[in-house]
Nucleic acid binder design. Structure first.
Lengths: 219, 219
DNA sequence: TATTAATTTGAACGAACGTTAAAAATAGTG
DNA sequence: CACTATTTTTAACGTTCGTTCAAATTAATA
């Protein structure tokens, strides 16, 4: 019997503490390798080695490779969504939102977790970029990220009533891509600039860029 | 003996017409599959099948897989660079460049080739996105794309004298990411918008977005 | 046409891959 | 403790992978 169960099959006992720890180690290893090498480049054997478990454990706790990928992406998606929505609520509680404050509520949690959330969150930030740029994982985007993206798009729409909804969505996707580039292409920024840039100033630069971009695209 | 030769080994005969055709078919197939499935997801066997040649021909004309990948990326890089630099020269010949006109000289050739250059160029546009988001292909970026990117960064720098060079580069990378998202994530725009958007209006929207973003990041 | 280089064909190598199955060990329950 | 569900271990399956090599074929040259 398999730990990844269909919804109708119910277990009779709660998973043991050791089982939960093993599962967490497997998912952490999968997260790191999926992020570094992509879905096809990451092997279950390397995950098992990195997690310090046997190969079959990866299948036991993660199911088939595609299911494991989904599980890993979905695991932290809820927390990230909650951080973003909470930041958005905080903004709205402080007065009328602006493009800047709404954008910051979307972008800051991502960059903050990537910078200060530990190596697992840094890997997860990279993983999101894989999902967001491969139509193969469209269903994962729909399940894990689109609800929050839609909420933020609606929020921006309220700031620009009557503007083309496709333009709002496009500007948001442009902003997401620019944001992800700080995870996937910082090496390129450093190479072209001939020096390493610190994260804080890059986040401000990104926010300046995206805010003005959105405003321009919608007017 | 191998068709992919080191620089010091010189062939004694020019390649035959049939050989050149075979090589082109192999590179076209590799381009399509690398673009669709990434480096690890694309197999040499599928390329051979798609090209209608035998497996060993892929190695003969492309060398090892990594060399084939580089060859495919480099093949059209020169033409794209030339289109961009020519557009930039045209802009400068017309008078003092603006952020908008410089940006358009960089972005339009890419989107135009992707839209009207045929299926191979569409695949190549996707391929560039793979190279640009994976540090593993850093050397390919440096060889194929960084020279032109540097030229455009310098051009923007002339429009904003005294501004932080790291900010210029960052804003350019953000713009490249947004541009690439029209190739890698249009499905997401369509999904979030609930409708398909036409390319022309998306290009204008992208240019509006990037122009304002660059201006804001540099002031 | 004879000779030689270039190219194509055909076959196989060893390695790594995802997945599965059954036995062994563990942990929770009565 | 006895019993049972869960988890771990061990081993192997069949497939696909990139790469290599030698023979066969094609094309160009002298």
């Amino acid at each position: 019997m398999n730990a990844v169960r269909t919804q109708e099959s119910r277990r009779q006992r709660a998973p043991s503490k050791r089982s939960l720890e093993t599962r967490a180690r497997v998912l952490d290893a999968a997260e790191k390798l999926f992020a570094e090498r992509g879905f096809d480049g990451a092997s279950l054997r390397d995950m098992a080695k990195l997690a310090g478990v046997h190969l079959a454990q990866v299948n036991f706790h993660g199911g088939a490779k595609e299911d494991l990928f989904f599980t890993v992406v979905a695991r932290r998606a809820g927390e990230l969504s909650q951080l973003r929505l909470q930041a958005l609520e905080d903004v709205k509680a402080r007065g009328r939102p602006t493009v800047r404050s709404v954008l910051e509520a979307f972008i800051h949690p991502y960059l903050d977790q990537a910078a200060h959330g530990g190596p697992q969150w840094l890997a997860y930030a990279r993983l999101i970029a894989h999902v967001s740029t491969d139509i193969r994982w469209r269903h994962i985007s729909e399940a894990c990220f689109d609800p929050v993206a839609t909420a933020f798009a609606r929020e921006i729409a309220m700031l620009y009533p009557g503007s083309d909804h496709r333009k709002i969505v496009a500007a948001l996707v442009f902003s997401v891509s620019a944001m992800l580039s700080l995870t996937t292409a910082r090496w390129r920024i450093d190479a072209l600039a001939g020096a390493e840039a610190d994260g804080m100033s890059m986040e401000r630069c990104l926010l300046d860029y995206c805010e003005a971009g959105i405003r321009a695209a919608l007017s």
